[in-house]
Design a protein around this nucleic acid. Structure first.
Lengths: 182, 182
DNA sequence: AACGATACGGACTGATCACTCCGCTTGTCA
DNA sequence: TGACAAGCGGAGTGATCAGTCCGTATCGTT
């Protein structure tokens, strides 16, 4: 692969990330090309389809998030770690358009396109949840599926909730519901 | 207004409701016209804009929902009534595409297009919430805003959650979080 | 330096869609 | 029943956008 090609590919990914974050998945490919300082042809040479480009940045974002999340599994307070992770994901969803949709797809449409990356995050959450249940800091009768639905819901709602305090409050209520009755 | 005009207007609304429920807001106006057994011109004569048509069916759905919800304010168990209402809205969101978005807009983008209709539902929820807090069946420190965020989140997540049991479980967790600690 | 392969830019194509316009039909009322 | 306004259908218009194609520029290699 030629040097300029590699450089342009990276530029396109970077531009796509910000454009999709700002305008959502409906942003035009031309806008991405413009932002990258590149012709449309170049975009399509590197990513044969708009969907492929979109998927590429989804994978990118997800693997970054999953990578940051992984160390949490070593935490002594798994429920707390889970909550921190959720807070981080919720903030990302509030800030970057279409990230909430990504989270919804990863959380809920399990057989989704890019499987491995979503699994990684899901696995981390599963580990934390198990540990928290064992520790007695999360109710034993809630499963991963429920938690994923709640996470997706919080992320999707966050997209329309500019006030961070309010997002935090909603998260608090959910975690109160996850805590075992005393 | 001529008899056939009134009849066609109703047909268009009916068709739009099912088409938007099936395909979401991106469904084409032509599809609505076809489903209504009417020319496109007719659709645009009654609703000058696709957006106007969409807004009309949003208002329609919302006022139906708000109307059904209103009697609940008389309930002796306001927390239970609130939960029933949420369950109903969540089911609707799971079944009818774009209803979840409507709920999100009504819940979160307060200054939205069709104000009065959203207010009606919001008022009912506020009344139930107040009563429940007074009765001590909902924590005193959660406000309407938080509840609306949670409702929107549950509805948005429901759109991707075909399993009704799972939706119900998620709702349970949220309501557990709303219940005062014993 | 010179040459072939690789990559680039952006005009172009075809499809889709919201919306318009006008010749024709149908309801209404005298 | 006749006449005319109100309403209808759907071909047409312009805009947008994903994706193609090819003449040109750039890179790497000998």
């Amino acid at each position: 692969m030629r040097a300029d090609a590699r450089r342009n590919r990276e530029r396109v990914l970077e531009a796509a990330e910000t454009v999709f974050a700002e305008q959502g998945a409906t942003a035009s490919t031309e806008e991405v090309a413009r932002r990258a300082g590149v012709g449309i042809g170049t975009v399509f040479r590197h990513f044969p389809t708009k969907e492929a480009l979109y998927e590429a940045i989804v994978v990118r974002r997800l693997s970054r998030v999953a990578e940051q999340a992984q160390p949490l599994t070593a935490s002594a307070d798994p429920a707390g770690a889970l909550r921190d992770l959720f807070a981080r994901l919720i903030d990302e969803a509030a800030t970057k358009k279409a990230f909430a949709d990504t989270m919804a797809v990863v959380s809920l449409d399990v057989k989704a396109a890019a499987p491995a990356v979503g699994d990684q995050l899901r696995d981390t959450i599963a580990t934390l949840l198990d540990a928290a249940r064992t520790a007695g800091t999360v109710r034993a009768d809630v499963g991963l599926a429920e938690v994923m639905v709640l996470l997706a819901g919080l992320c999707l709602a966050a997209e329309h909730t500019p006030d961070p305090t309010l997002r935090e409050s909603a998260l608090s209520v959910v975690f109160a519901g996850l805590t075992p009755p005393s």
